[in-house]
Amino acid sequence: MFAGLPSLSHEQQQKAVERIQELITQGMSSGEAISLVANELRASHTGERVVARFDDEDEDE
């Protein structure tokens, strides 16, 4: 699978991690928090994007 991912600075990455941690402490599951923050980043990001390829490790088994 290929995905256009936002290219984030270290500071932006740190803020995303802190936001995820905040949501988790408020009772949200980690998966939901990560999904929410990822969607927020995609919606608000105006910089470059990185093309990444994700391999499903289970395909070969």
Rank of each mutant, 00 (worst) to 15 (best):
E48W: 07
H45M: 00
H45E: 00
Q12H: 08
D56N: 11
R42H: 10
K15L: 13
H10C: 07
D58N: 12
A43Q: 14
P6L: 02
Q12D: 05
L5T: 15
Q13G: 06
S35G: 07
A3C: 12
M28T: 00
V50E: 08
T46C: 06
L5Y: 15
N39H: 07
E40I: 03
E48G: 07
I24P: 01
A52C: 08
A52H: 08
A3H: 14
V17D: 02
S30L: 07
S29M: 03
A3I: 15
D60E: 13
M28L: 08
L41Y: 00
R42F: 08
L23V: 04
E40W: 03
V17A: 07
A52T: 08
D60W: 13
E48N: 10
E48T: 08
S35I: 07
I20M: 13
F2M: 13
L23H: 02
E11C: 06
G4K: 15
E22R: 06
A3F: 14
T25F: 10
V37W: 00
L5I: 15
D56F: 12
R19A: 04
N39Y: 09
Q14G: 03
R49G: 04
G31V: 04
R53H: 13
L41I: 04
G31C: 04
T46G: 05
H45C: 01
T25R: 15
E48S: 11
Q12S: 05
R49E: 06
R19D: 02
L5P: 05
L8Y: 02
A33G: 00
E18H: 08
D56C: 07
G47I: 01
G31T: 05
P6E: 00
A52Y: 11
E57G: 08
